Amino acid sequence: MAKQNTYYLVEADILPEVIVKTARAKELLSKGEVATVTEAVEAVGISRSVFYKYKDGILPFYEASRERIVTITMELIHEFGVLSNVLQTVAKHQGNVLTINQTLPLQGLAIVTLTMETKSMDIDIPSFLEQLINLKGVKKAQVVGHNEQNIN
């Protein structure tokens, strides 16, 4: 029988320093801020052996939510093409829209709730939200919930 992994959600400040530094090194690599593992471990002050020992056991919260359903709420300015640009951004990063709901615009703003599958996305959720917020006409974007069930 295959070993089943157990996961815990803990605050970073109670973790050993090497675990936090390993997570930071992985983040530097994933964001392209460094090109190699050697550069990443030097930047955070750990050895390569420590990095390789812990790298597969530590995941940022949002990365751990891969293969999950995420619900994002947004405030959009009521202008032509704003929602289309949001949906293009979802598609660009291989998100799969499951539901989308939009309120009637009031005082030039519409509230949009988007539920999507993140399994195939090529970007983490915080970076994705940042891209959404930087789109013209998007006033606010935030995760309001996620479902831990996988979609088959």
Rank of each mutant, 00 (worst) to 15 (best):
V82W: 08
N134S: 12
V97T: 06
T103I: 14
N152S: 05
Y7V: 04
A141F: 06
P105K: 01
E42S: 09
S84W: 15
A64R: 10
L104H: 13
L132E: 07
T115I: 01
E33L: 15
T6G: 01
I46L: 05
L109E: 11
Q142R: 11
L106R: 13
R66C: 00
K136W: 11
L104F: 14
L83M: 12
A35Q: 14
E33I: 12
Y7R: 01
R66T: 00
Q131Y: 10
I133S: 03
L135Y: 13
K31E: 15
L104N: 13
T118A: 04
A23H: 08
M1S: 13
Y52A: 00
E63C: 00
T71E: 06
D124A: 02
M116S: 05
L98T: 07
V70E: 11
S49M: 03
K119G: 05
V44I: 10
K3A: 09
A35P: 02
P60T: 11
D124Q: 04
Q88M: 10
H146Q: 09
T115E: 01
E130C: 02
G57E: 09
T99K: 06
F61C: 02
T118F: 01
S120D: 13
G45H: 01
V44G: 02
F128Y: 10
Q88G: 03
N5H: 08
I72E: 08
N96E: 13
I14R: 07
L29W: 15
F61D: 00
F80E: 10
L83I: 05
V90E: 09
A40L: 06
S47F: 02
L104Y: 14
L132G: 03
D122S: 03
T22D: 04
S127H: 09
E39G: 07
Y62W: 13
Q149K: 13
A40V: 07
E11I: 07
L9Y: 07
N96W: 07
V90L: 12
T118D: 00
A35M: 12
V41T: 07
I77W: 09
L28H: 12
